[in-house]
Design a protein around this nucleic acid. Structure first.
Length: 665
RNA sequence: GCCCUUGUAGCUCAGCUGGAUAGAGCAUUCGACUUCUAAUCGAACGGUCGCAGGUUCGAAUCCUGCCAAGGGUGCCA
């Protein structure tokens, strides 16, 4: 049930009856201006259209507009008499009978009164898309968690959702593993325990590449620092003598140069540290000596694979399933899945043909040896084939879009990808449009960076990205410490076994990471704080999960089950008496509103906000309305009904967020 | 240089696309437990919404210009 649109329809009809109706170009724009009340004292919803109409229509002030509309409308079946307030707000308060009847309907509906859309769309969602064969890291959280939540939510709203994990299964990382296998690997060990062994080989080669790169960069970095320092001194001197606005500008560019010097010095230092670390390790140091050209050698292995080299192809086919096992383990832990997993390798055979087509159509041209698509709107072209003949991710993305159009005919394609790739997607969408690759609405559902507590992108002390699995382990450990505090656990009857405790810690720990991520507006960066997110007070996963557990617990204590409560409400209805009951009931009716808001902006934080305010309304209800010792059977049944519905709504909402609930905690 | 994003309470963040007195959580202070789980509830404290203009009945939200932080910017993804 979407209450605002319920009112919008009536207001649209009423506005059409008014004397000024013919002067409104798009009346729906006005009738849609229904919002939840800014303040409970104004009622439950407010209509804000009278002010803009009053401005538009000659000879009528907003209050007169509101009066005219109210004369044409009948809302008696839904709310109390509407009131005009302030400059022309129309305040609406849901009526008690309407609330009671609707709650009665709600308990018989397993979708919590969330209607399936009458116009389902085919929506393809591309999310997660990690590079396999590399450990997943903190950077994969957002796309995975946001993408899964959107998929679940849109599907629940009745849309035809197809999810696809566009794996990076064809890139340099396989060159790395193949090189590692050929030089440091052992067939038997790999066969026995492939996943950790391949990860180890990846780390060794990656490390050596880093070392060689660092060594090669020493001289250029030192030279660069000198140049920058000279430039900085010159700029500073110029700033010294310049005047007025010019001086400010010069100072600014001098400051920029100074920072650049600092940054370059920092990279030099980290290069030196990485070299020192390698050379301190006798095994690594020896390997480094024996593989001086490892960087180009790895690229060779990669291009041999792409060119169809039999041995490398065979190794790729052998390794890929193990790499998939590895990421699937993480997905299982995160409770995330996909309909399709069509990686880059799947599209590889289509790339050459695609590029040739574009050249023939005159859309792509050669420039500096590379094949480019030049676009009016952008300074730099989209490069689809490198000088050396290799293809790029832009090429794959075009091929992927074409395939998706041919295979799924989507109405919308959502790319849940990092904001830094914004320009790439802008270009991709323009090219797709000029090529008429698809008529789907293409959306880059972009998101910000996960920062450490220092406000900088999250890294370990050695500068590498933090592994996703260890992050989950830490969260679960932290959750265990708080949730399974012996003093608390001792109070449960029947006693809580260690398996149950571990299950709770897992749900709360994983939930904490997801909830913290989804609670932020996706476009902004956020600071990742494990201590805060596992905390059990305030706006956290645990608070929401705890609310659900409380709801279950009340039913247990009163000694009824859901079916029993549902049956009582179906035959006797409800009788709402307390303000806290009313507030909770209205909150429960807003579920669909929250879900529509998620879809409108692809914004999961709208659902998190809803979960929190529902849990909050439930906590107040718990505080003020005792169920077991309710003053009468009628009131107890009503409260039991609210408890059942709260449990269902919270469970459903958390499920859509990808968060599990537990019956007690 | 050009382009994009961000700037809201001591800290972490919302703010439903222009509406009423800008809201939460954390932190601090005070109050409520013979409890259907106090992992809770109530109250207080806390703001030049980066700055300056503009648009109008009305701006944190829209437009312009500054300031600050971050990111992107032809052969990585």
């Amino acid at each position: 049930m979407h209450l605002p649109s319920l009112f919008s329809q009536r207001f649209a009809e009423a506005i059409a009856q008014c004397s000024f109706a013919s002067q409104l170009e798009s009346p729906q724009q006005f009738s849609d201006m229904i919002r939840p009340a800014a303040n409970p004292k104004f009622g439950d919803y407010q209509a804000n259209f009278a002010m803009p109409i009053g401005k538009l229509v000659e000879g009528l002030n907003p209050r007169q507009v509101a009066e005219q509309v109210l004369q044409q409308i009948d809302l008696n079946d839904r709310c109390e008499a509407p009131e005009i307030a302030g400059p022309g707000f129309i305040n609406l308060k849901l009526s008690q009978p309407f609330l009671e009847q609707t709650m009665q309907q709600m308990i018989s509906d397993d979708r919590c009164l969330v209607q399936k859309t009458a116009a389902p769309k085919k929506i393809l969602i591309d999310y997660s898309s990690p590079n396999v064969a590399k450990p997943m890291h903190v950077g994969h959280i957002r796309t995975t968690v946001i993408g899964y939540c959107l998929a679940q939510t849109l599907r629940f709203l009745g849309h035809d959702v197809v999810t696809d994990n566009h794996l990076g299964d064809w890139g340099t990382q396989f060159g790395i593993i193949i090189y590692g296998y050929k030089h440091f690997g052992d067939a038997e060990t790999v066969a026995q325990d492939p996943v950790p062994e391949l990860a180890k080989l990846y780390r060794i080669v990656h490390h050596l590449m880093g070392y060689q790169k660092a060594k090669a960069s020493l001289e250029t970095l030192a030279a660069e620092i000198e140049t920058l320092k000279t430039q900085h001194q010159a700029a500073a001197a110029e700033a010294e003598v310049a005047e007025g606005k010019e001086a400010k500008k010069k100072r600014k560019s001098a400051e920029a140069l100074r920072r650049k010097v600092q940054a370059t010095e920092a990279s030099l230092q980290s290069a030196q540290e990485s070299i020192a670390a390698t050379e301190a390790d006798p095994v690594m140091s020896q390997r480094a000596e024996q593989h001086p050209d490892i960087g180009t050698a790895v690229l060779m292995e990669t291009s041999k694979l792409h060119a169809g080299d039999a041995k490398n192809q065979e190794l790729w086919e052998e390794f890929l399933p193990h790499c998939k096992d590895e990421i699937n383990r993480v997905y299982a832990r995160l409770n995330v899945d996909f309909d399709h997993t069509l990686g880059e390798s799947f599209y590889h055979p289509m790339l050459a043909g695609l590029v040739d087509d574009l050249i023939q159509q005159g859309l792509a041209t050669e420039s500096d040896g590379a094949i480019c698509v030049f676009l009016e709107q952008f300074d730099s072209p989209m490069i689809i084939r490198k000088r050396d003949g290799a293809f790029l991710y832009a090429t794959t993305d075009l091929a992927t879009l074409k395939y998706r159009q041919d295979t799924f005919q989507p109405d919308e394609v959502l790319y849940v990808v990092d904001a830094r790739q914004g320009e790439h997607f802008q270009k991709l969408f323009v090219v797709a449009d000029t090529l008429k690759l698809t008529d789907a609405k293409l959306v880059h559902v972009s998101f910000g960076t996960v920062l450490g507590e220092d406000g900088k992108p999250m890294k370990t002390r050695s500068g590498s990205l933090i592994g996703l699995e260890s992050l989950i382990d830490d969260a679960v450990d932290a959750a265990y410490q708080v949730v399974c505090d012996p003093d608390r656990v001792a109070n449960f009857d029947p006693p809580m076994e260690s398996t149950e405790q571990k299950a709770i810690a897992e749900a709360v720990g994983v939930g904490a990471i997801k909830y913290a991520d989804l609670s932020h507006d996706r476009t902004s960066d956020y600071k990742f704080s494990l201590t805060k997110m596992v905390q059990l007070t305030g706006n956290t996963a645990a608070y929401a999960q705890y609310s659900y557990a409380r709801a279950s617990s009340i039913l247990r204590v009163v000694g009824v089950d859901e079916a029993e409560v549902q049956q009582r409400i179906e035959s006797n209805g409800l009788t709402i008496t307390e303000p806290a009951e009313r507030a909770l009931a209205i909150e429960l009716l807003r579920f669909e509103e929250a879900l529509q808001n998620v879809y409108q902006d692809y914004a999961p934080n709208q659902l998190v906000d809803y979960v929190y305010s529902t849990a909050e309304a439930f906590a107040k209800f718990n505080n003020q309305c005792h169920v077991k010792n309710a003053p009468s059977q009628e009131i107890q049944d009503t409260r039991l009904g609210l408890v059942v519905l709260t449990g269902r709504v919270l469970k459903q909402a958390l499920t859509l967020l990808g968060i599990n609930v537990v019956p007690r905690m």
